[in-house]
């Protein structure tokens, strides 16, 4: 409670109080006070005297703790200029189109999708002849996934496109001669 009053008064004592930046904080603290008072009606009687006492004290405290909000960043977020299309997502959704082997076997086992540290994030039970689409969300910072089906394993490079084709079949290198 004391902390709430103190915060409220700190805000009140600031010159920037009436800027939009502080309205949100002030509303927050007002609400806090109201809630506390509503819960404890006896406190109403003490509030007025506490308000007077704290006014002076809090304004003095303000000088001491004025740097509790870094002035450099006071408007940091609000001053950001971001593209309208930016979605603030830290992850990316991919559809991996697994291209099955046209003459594949029907043996089933899980296709495992791992992130680079080896942790498995997806298991899909498939045969090598299946064509399947796999949806998954990957942190945007990740650059590769590792796909394995038993002993078959291949690294998939995550591309800008959300849709990626994948097959375990290696391209043919003619070694007939």
């Amino acid at each position: 409670m004391i902390y709430a009053i103190e915060r409220l008064l700190k805000l009140f004592c600031r010159k920037q109080f009436f800027t939009q930046d502080y309205r949100g904080k002030f509303a927050k603290n007002i609400n806090q006070l109201i809630m506390q008072i509503m819960k404890n009606k006896r406190f109403r009687k003490l509030l007025f005297s506490a308000f007077i006492i704290c006014t002076v004290a809090s304004c003095d405290v303000e000088e001491v703790v004025a740097d509790d909000i870094d002035p450099i960043n006071q408007n940091g977020m609000k001053s950001l200029v971001v593209d309208d299309s930016f979605d603030w997502s830290t992850s990316k959704d991919y559809t991996i189109n697994f291209k099955g082997n046209p003459i594949g076997t029907t043996i089933e086992r899980p296709l495992e999708i791992k992130i680079e540290n080896g942790d498995v994030i997806r298991r899909v039970n498939i045969s090598l002849s299946d064509n399947v689409s796999i949806n998954l969300r990957v942190p945007s910072k990740d650059e590769n996934l590792i796909l394995s089906w038993g002993s078959l394993e291949k690294t998939l490079t995550l591309e800008e496109s959300n849709t990626i084709d994948f097959t375990f079949i290696e391209p043919d290198v003619d070694e007939e001669e």
């Binding site: 082997n101 076997t105 391209p171 043919d172």
Partner: peptide, 10 residues
């Protein structure tokens, strides 16, 4: 289509 890969995978 002449690719050995699918057979090799099998």
């Amino acid at each position: 289509n002449g690719q050995r890969g699918p057979f090799q995978q099998n």
